[in-house]
Simulated scan of single mutants.
Amino acid sequence: MPVSLPRIWPSADGKPLPPAGTADVFRTFARDLVAGHRSWDGETARFIAAQFDQLAAEWDAHATGRDEPLHDALDRGGPFPHGACLELGSGTGLFTQLLLSVFPRVISVDLSEQMLHEAVGRSPARVRADATALPLADAQVSAVAAIDMLLFPAETVRVLAPDGVLLWINQLGEDGPLHLPAADVAAALPGNWQAVEADAGWGSWAVLRRTR
């Protein structure tokens, strides 16, 4: 079971809730994908990339999340191994600089070329790639940061160093369209994992580590 820390970042008023029907569809997709009940293929990847390409130019203006969950994770979820951090689903780079305050190098990966274009000036190292087939060697990074991201367990674990950590961030917590509880994330990852988690602001976070 995850170790839950007390909340120290209050939840502000005005939390922007996504449409219930849409959020439910995406949460079901995210859970079915992890459970192996849905597949991820080239057609799905192209569809998702096209959707985010269209949203990229206006993404920052309509971004609903806040950075309290990531701040809290970086403050209380450590210590973190020294090394590169892989930022999956990095989007327009809204959180890259915060990750760079802890990790010496951040590699920002997104499926959308236009999202990465909007991240110029924020994300120094940008790579367009599918998170199911990352262009990295085994055990290459010290951390994987997944902020409102689908979970691809096998590939995530493949690129993590033995002492590496997964930062699992949900900006809107249980209301987020891609929310997965920390216990479900830990159960889906190959091997044995322990999570530390907390609520922060509108969202929640978990930092997961392998257990010996």
Rank of each mutant, 00 (worst) to 15 (best):
R76K: 11
G93Q: 04
G65T: 01
V34P: 08
G36V: 13
T92P: 12
E68I: 00
P16H: 02
R31E: 10
D24Y: 00
W59D: 09
G42K: 14
I48P: 00
R76A: 12
F26E: 14
R27E: 08
V25L: 14
R66V: 08
P19L: 02
L88Y: 11
F47G: 07
P16E: 03
W40S: 07
F95N: 12
A50E: 14
L70I: 10
E87C: 06
A35I: 04
L74S: 04
A23W: 01
P69N: 08
T92Q: 05
E43D: 15
L94M: 13
W40H: 12
F29W: 10
D72H: 11
D41I: 13
T22I: 03
L94C: 03
F80H: 08
L88S: 06
H62G: 13
D75Q: 15
G77P: 11
A63M: 13
L86A: 13
A84C: 04
T22E: 04
R66P: 03
P81R: 02
A61S: 10
R27Y: 07
V34R: 03
A57D: 07
W40Q: 06
G65K: 05
D60A: 09
L33G: 05
A45S: 13
R31W: 11
A20D: 09
L88M: 07
T64A: 15
G65S: 10
T22K: 03
D41T: 09
W59Y: 15
H37W: 10
L88K: 01
L17Q: 04
H37S: 15
D75Y: 10
V34Y: 10
A23Q: 01
G83M: 00
G89D: 00
G91E: 07
K15H: 05
P18V: 00
T92K: 03
D72M: 14
